[in-house]
Design a protein around this nucleic acid. Structure first.
Length: 260
DNA sequence: ATGGTGGTTCAACCA
């Protein structure tokens, strides 16, 4: 069973590429971020025609997340628990069947947090604290689960081509990285890191300054697996070839393959 | 590089 995450940076601009990638990569489950669409504007019919069920948590203009799955998507929760006043559409969760077992999938678009010195950075850290609390609650269920998405966190120096260029960026602040490590300390596994520990694995290249041509990338899109999901982990990878497409997203798909 | 590019909505915001 293949589970993928992709920040597509606008579903209207990316629907053709998304359908091409679905046909080629054949994921069973996809977590999409930055759809930048309200629910009614999401291309549900085209994606259903490609063989997927759809659950959307949209927002006008910014943010927005969605789950796609070949199986039914059950018990959908929209919005990250812990702050009913948070209006930003950054989290969607649902259960899918992997063979005979149910897997809980959380798709997330973690706040960017830039620029430092504004209210955006404490919002990011507060959101990460809510994610940690929710991950702890999911762990207690002992159901296999995956938290997949654009974390907007560079975990280690090896996850950036030029790590020092990110020293003043919210994605690489000590507080952001410490919050990431607290997620790992719950017993979650960074699937890409565990399957390919070497440097040079990136998931995002800025549109600006020829970042892709220079391979000036960072690894910020992650799949964190619960202990019960890690037991099923067979492989993980990054579909970097989509970054060379015309009109690409600045992020590329990241995926794991689970047994059964 | 206090710039650079791109998406969405429609002059400004976000990344």
């Amino acid at each position: 069973m293949k589970i993928a995450t992709w920040n597509i940076n606008g579903v209207k601009a990316r629907i053709e590429g998304l359908l091409t990638w679905l046909a080629e990569s054949k994921p069973d489950v996809v977590c999409l971020q930055e759809i930048k669409s309200v629910d009614e504007g999401f291309p549900t019919e085209a994606i259903e025609a490609a063989g997927y069920n759809v659950a959307v948590h949209g927002q006008k203009g910014f943010n927005g997340v969605a789950l796609l799955a070949k199986s039914r998507i059950e018990d959908v929760v929209r919005g990250l628990p812990g702050d009913p006043g948070d209006e930003q559409a950054r989290y969607i969760e649902g259960s899918v069947m992997a063979g005979s077992r149910s897997v809980r999938i959380g798709g997330l678009y973690l706040p960017n947090g830039n620029p430092l010195g504004t209210e955006k950075f404490p919002y990011k850290l507060a959101w990460m604290a809510r994610l940690e609390a929710h991950a702890r609650a999911l762990t207690a269920t002992e159901q296999p689960f995956i938290l997949a998405g654009d974390y907007n966190v560079i975990p280690e120096r090896a996850d950036a081509k030029i790590p020092d260029a990110w020293n003043s960026d919210a994605l690489f602040q000590p507080e952001s990285r410490a919050a990431w490590r607290r997620l790992l300390a719950l017993g979650l596994t960074d699937a890409i890191r565990s399957c390919d520990p070497g440097p040079g694995v990136y998931t995002f290249w800025d549109y600006q300054a020829g970042a892709w041509q220079k391979d000036n990338g960072i690894r910020i899109d992650h799949l964190l697996l619960s202990p019960q999901a890690t037991d099923l982990l067979q492989s993980a990878g990054v579909d970097r070839y989509t970054r060379s497409w015309e009109k690409p997203s600045d992020h590329v798909p990241v995926w794991v393959e689970l047994a059964a």
